[in-house]
Amino acid sequence: MIVLDSASGGGATWAWPQRVLIAFGCFVLFTVEAGAQAHQPPKVEQDDYLWQHESNPYSGDADAIASGRRLYRSTCYICHLDSGGRGPDLRKSKLKEKDFMRVVISGRKGTQMPAWKGKLSEDEMWKILAFVQAPR
């Protein structure tokens, strides 16, 4: 069951995470209006973060998923458990890949989701995402 959208389609379909991210003041975000965005690339996409990958290089990679599972266990699990606890069930997340990553990197203000930058490398975060995306 892959519940995360692939990033290849471009624009955002869900405004909430963007608002959250705007609230962070960390990123300049997609400005595309909902509804018209499906086939348009985002007009602006600038992060003060230099991405190594634009989409998950580890999707479906068994070794990366296994290591993502281990990482998930030592970081995410304590709140998100297998299917949600204090934090939501990540497999049900509707965030697009990079938005998911942004939340992991910078946290989510007003919630208990902390910033993982400095604690996990981008590579490790992508592996966690690969595990979350993988069928279980």
């Binding site: 304590i78 204090r86 946290g107 989701m113 902390p114 910033a115 993982w116 400095g118 604690k119």
Partner: peptide, 12 residues
């Protein structure tokens, strides 16, 4: 620090 939550098992 915004990373503090990474070491809080059981809430703030």
């Amino acid at each position: 620090a915004p990373e503090l939550g990474t070491v809080l098992c059981c809430g703030p």
